[in-house]
């Protein structure tokens, strides 16, 4: 399997006034094509920061971030945007659908930005994806007419409509009840298997970690291990019982 994401010695600093916060302190990570990878860690450990770097919506302070073979530090703003459009799909914690557009239009939007398919092709692609996420009958609905789980399905369809190499999801189930969350994860998992799309999602929920092939555990801005889900869950439970600071580094 070939690496689709390579991160090496990445440091991300936020400056707050005079003080500098290090959200990531020398993270290295390789993600292979087709992985269903979870990034786990307690609150403040740097999960979102890491996903932002992988998603090319932010740049590292130091270190190498290579996505789909491209060193993101060397790309212009325009090129980064194109990289996001064509190779990355996003699933957000709070769904982030465009409220004034219908389900269909929300999903179609990235295709319109790409501007490579005809209207017919777009229609076929969008409806088939919405069928796969189980919303074939809701094309004309507005996001506010859907439940949280349905909204996240729409978001998944939108993330996948351009056939991206990687889908990034920051706590995709955090705003859903656990049953719905599991359905969403099942859906992601099946799409990962049927299409071979790489999924990277963050969570601090051990039930969610179980779905992954592998779990990268973060703590305090550092990768503290890449493990099988069962190990990670055990560690995570341990972490939850003891404060992060108390852990030996």
């Amino acid at each position: 399997m070939s690496a689709i994401v390579t991160i090496k010695d990445v440091v991300k600093e936020y400056s707050l006034g005079t003080t500098v916060v290090q959200a990531l302190r020398g993270v290295s990570l390789v993600v292979d094509k087709g992985e269903f990878l979870s990034i786990a860690g307690p609150s403040g450990s740097g999960k979102t920061t890491l996903l932002n770097l992988l998603g090319c919506v932010d740049t590292a302070t130091r270190g190498l971030v290579e996505v789909a073979g491209k060193d993101t530090a060397k790309l212009t703003e325009r090129e980064l945007t194109n990289l996001r459009l064509n190779t990355i799909g996003f699933i957000f914690q709070s769904f982030n659908l465009v409220s004034v557009l219908t389900v269909f239009q929300n999903v179609e939007f990235p295709l319109l930005l790409q501007n490579t398919l005809s209207a017919g092709e777009r229609k076929a692609r969008v409806t088939s994806l919405l069928e796969q996420v189980g919303l074939a009958t809701h094309l004309k609905h507005r996001p506010n007419e859907l439940s949280g789980g349905q909204r996240q399905r729409v978001a998944i369809a939108r993330a996948l409509v351009t056939d991206p190499m990687i889908v990034l999801a920051d706590e995709p189930t955090a705003n859903l009840d656990s049953a719905t969350g599991q359905q969403i994860l099942d859906l992601m998992r099946s799409l990962n298997q049927s299409k071979g799309t790489t999924f990277i999602f963050s969570t601090h929920d051990h039930k969610v970690m179980r779905y992954a092939n592998a779990v990268v555990r973060l703590a305090d801005g550092k990768v503290i291990g890449r493990e099988k889900p069962e190990e990670a869950v055990a560690h995570a439970i341990g972490e939850l019982s003891a404060p992060v600071e108390a852990l030996p580094s």
Binding site: E77, T81, N82, F109, L113, A159, T162
Partner: peptide
């Protein structure tokens, strides 16, 4: 969001 999913400025 639009920017993140690939809309140019």
């Amino acid at each position: 969001t639009l920017r993140a999913i690939g809309a140019q400025k």
